[in-house]
Design a protein around this nucleic acid. Structure first.
Length: 242
DNA sequence: AACACCGCCAACCGCCTGTTG
DNA sequence: GCAACAGGCGGTTGGCGGTGT
């Protein structure tokens, strides 16, 4: 999990910190503070560069740091703050006492970002927002989806389009920069998308086939959910989502 | 049981910004 | 105004451990 200790060309130790080093650093900082990170390692008897000492202190040794999994509240806060602030991890960390920017950054890259990348086949099966099909099933509104896909009028389509835009905005708000391109860029099979928008509104796409493509089209599913529903889904599914 | 793959996270690296002389 | 330096930040890497095949 950590890099093996090594010595660089300047004789500075790199890699994983030993308990002894941690103790030296902690003792020194608690006693003398850290007014000068460059000189600190020499005074503390450490063969580390100042940067490395600072990082170790800030991310690991500083009192008051939380360890372990992010709570549901913290997870939601990270998503909200990222939507607002972007990759300003230090700014986000300020709002999450006990969490470091590095920790939040790791959390984002490992837990959140991967699941929101478009054109990633596996994630559509696990992300309840992207894979809104699962949400529709859970909320038992599949009948509504079927009815819209098979009996929708022009007004219904206009309404759907409007909902898409709302859903799109909601996702942008939630995921900011990580959500690029919008719903319309999601991995929708061209024939499925095309057939939906091109079919006559009262097309009698018979039976399972009609409802099948409507369910597998995120654009339509997202529209069905709409802004509020998407946010509800996000909240409702948080435990599964993370 | 052995191997391959993947998730997680500590730590490094390089760049940017603020401060000081 | 400029250069040098230190601190801070965000992106990326490396490797352990868990899980799947």
């Amino acid at each position: 999990m950590v890099r093996p200790p090594s010595i660089d060309s300047n004789g500075m130790k790199k890699g994983a910190w030993s308990e002894d080093e941690d103790e030296k650093l902690k003792t020194y900082v608690e006693k003398y503070g850290h007014s000068n990170w460059r000189l600190l390692p020499r005074h503390a008897g450490l063969k580390r560069c100042g940067k490395s000492c600072r990082l170790r202190w800030v991310n690991y040794l500083k009192p008051g740091l939380k360890r372990g999994n992010f709570s549901k509240e913290e997870q939601q806060l990270v998503v909200e703050l990222h939507a607002e602030l972007g990759n300003k991890w230090s700014a986000i960390a300020v709002k999450l006492p006990g969490r470091t920017d590095n920790e939040i950054k790791n959390f984002w890259h490992t837990r959140v970002e991967k699941r929101h990348k478009p054109n990633h086949a596996s994630q559509t099966a696990t992300n309840p927002i992207i894979n809104t099909h699962s949400v529709i099933e859970k909320t038992d509104s599949s009948d509504e989806a079927t009815s819209l896909s098979t009996n929708s009028s022009q007004d219904d389509l206009d309404s759907l389009l409007s909902s898409i835009l709302e859903a799109d905005a909601a996702l942008n708000e939630c995921f900011g920069a990580s959500y690029v391109g919008g719903l319309s860029s999601w991995p929708v099979e061209d024939d499925a998308r095309g057939s939906f928008w091109n079919e006559p509104s009262n097309a009698s796409n018979s039976g399972s086939e009609a409802s099948s493509y409507s369910y597998t089209t995120p654009v339509v599913e997202g529209a069905l959910l709409g802004y509020d529903s998407l946010l509800q889904c996000f909240d409702y599914e948080t435990s599964l989502f993370w």
